[in-house]
Design a binder for these strands. Sequence first.
DNA 1: TCGTAGTTGATCGGAATTGTTCGTCTGGAC
DNA 2: GTCCAGACGAACAATTCCGATCAACTACGA
Lengths: 388, 388
Amino acid sequence: MTHEAPLPSERRARLVARVRETGSARVTDLSRWLGVTPVTVRRDLALLVADGTLEKVHGGARIPARDAGTSAGGQGTGAGRAAGAGLGAHTVVPTAVALPEGSFADDAQPTIGMVVPSLDYYWPEVIRGARAAAHGWARLILRGGSYDVDQIRHQLAALVGDEGGAGVDGLLVAPPVEGPEATELADWLAGLGLPVVLMERRLAAGPYREPLESVATDHALGSGTAARHLADRGHRRVGLVTARTSPTSAAVRRGFLAVAEERGLDVVLDRGTVPLSDPGWSGDAAAVLDACAESGATALLVHSDREAISLVEQAQERGVRVPADLAVVAYDDEVAGLADPPLTAVRPPKATIGAGAVDLLTRRLRGGDDRPVHRVELSPHLLVRSST
Amino acid sequence: MTHEAPLPSERRARLVARVRETGSARVTDLSRWLGVTPVTVRRDLALLVADGTLEKVHGGARIPARDAGTSAGGQGTGAGRAAGAGLGAHTVVPTAVALPEGSFADDAQPTIGMVVPSLDYYWPEVIRGARAAAHGWARLILRGGSYDVDQIRHQLAALVGDEGGAGVDGLLVAPPVEGPEATELADWLAGLGLPVVLMERRLAAGPYREPLESVATDHALGSGTAARHLADRGHRRVGLVTARTSPTSAAVRRGFLAVAEERGLDVVLDRGTVPLSDPGWSGDAAAVLDACAESGATALLVHSDREAISLVEQAQERGVRVPADLAVVAYDDEVAGLADPPLTAVRPPKATIGAGAVDLLTRRLRGGDDRPVHRVELSPHLLVRSST
DNA sequence: TCGTAGTTGATCGGAATTGTTCGTCTGGAC
DNA sequence: GTCCAGACGAACAATTCCGATCAACTACGA
């Protein structure tokens, strides 16, 4: 984490982004999140309210309702209005109809179990989105941090609570998709009798291979957009570097190669690497750069922005200028914007993945079994920065 | 860190959403669900009643009876909102004239334009779903009844109101997808600057071929399920009858053929027909039955249940027993259940298509432009009746 | 080194919100 | 018609939030 205090303008931007994420946020949460006192948050809010970016309510702020009337805006929740002592007399409904008993029986908010493969990379933002969406609608219990099938299964079983466990009402899962154990796990999930929503995964289960409910990014679309971007910039010889262990790299490759063919690009390099954390990374990176020099590639799509940053560093040490000699697009946007130069990156809508999964699950919890299986596909976004 | 209580205004918005979902809700249920005491819920309700957003009854609250149905005031939006803004601030309105004050509830309802190719077939149920979902959230204006590109474009232009038209805030469309005009129409839609959601269609637009937002049935999945069903019943020689003019028949064919190959079925008949309304239908039907007899097909998937019913009738007149001699699965389920025998049918989730499209559109209208493009895929459902 | 402008934090009185307790009232069962 | 569980409303208490004022800190330039 960064200990240095960000610039006020930066802080305000983050504040707005945070509020936008959920539509509203409380002052206390914002202050804790930003690491400043509530007073400062309120001052920021006052500024943002003044220029119309936000709207203040007691306890926090919210996105202003989209309205055209400029004069009407502002005068908020009238303080005195609520004290309508004389109001009660008028609001009595003359024909007092009572509601039927037990029109719907709902207990407290449902509990949702969430299992993700990593708590360090990619998923924190998904979790944030899920938490924001669940906020006030459901309780979220998180387990995670493993790519191991057995451990995931163990975590799921604990959440489901076969024998006096947590007893969640539904599950959000990002299970492995490769191999026979993955199929078995999918069948197990489908047979639980609980609503399940997959995140960033697509799986079918059961004898009829019916798809499970899911929310996932169209990674092929994202990498294809990156390829189009490179083609538009005039690159003809391009390369592709993907993380060998990532379940999404297949889609990234597919989209990139498809568009490359469509646009007549020469893919002179197509290589899988170990992740940055692996000791073998620097060797892989060097090999990639060697291959670039040899093949005359002028642009790369690098899966995972951390690897992209490292690659750019090593390239610069070799005297390869970015983007003049080698353009780089990062796939994923965790830290790409902080590199030097800031990297053009494809940003998957991670927070929306989490929020959408919670949304799907709560609707299913409420909506019953007539509801058809929903699969939601989200488009990633290309952020053009200085590395292309 | 206590319970992360949501903002009061947020809580009230959820309360309204909750009441809207079922039309009414009880105070005790709401209080349990929101995790606050009943008195707080009552205070919230009092505020909302003062706004005219809700109506109070003994035991709970409900949506006030809507005044002035959607049909009457096509574009009363602007005028009504302006008047309301000036009025609501200090004047207590005793009777529930819906004048939301722009605090948290959705203020002026957006207007949604909806254009469907047919008002007789398939789409009425989609429209029903859309209308139900829009109820209380948005005004729905419907145009439809044509498969002609120029006329559709004309209808869209009228809704968008280039020159003083209806001026809708967003569009739900089921445009044609074949041919150069279709591409042009897609580009035009994407360039409108209005949120657009496709129904039962998938299209990409713009130089980067970015997909538009859509809600669509996975017809290939449905026909594949039908094929699995037939295979499970022991059929080995099967046939496929699709409507030649339907934009969905391609997907139906694809799914059926894929599963047929996977399961080792012989597709001994694969034929497109004219629709039932066409004078050439009876000839097509006879030809299909001839081909069945000749090829030894024991089961058929017939696209559109009306055609399936007619085909079953003609088969029975020939002495072919259904399902003993010939099993029939209808693709689509408008009237399949009313046939004799009731037909096994694949039912696309039509109402959910409409509801999902409205949902996506209203969320985009509220959510802004940061929201990534959503594409929703729905699974159809196989209803096993007596024809297989 | 000093002064100035801008920003952040601390403190406190007042206001808003929520929960609790109590007595009253409604709607439906008998 | 009578009765009762549950809903309603009012008053009070506890908590939290807001806004204003003052103090402390940093950045920048003379």
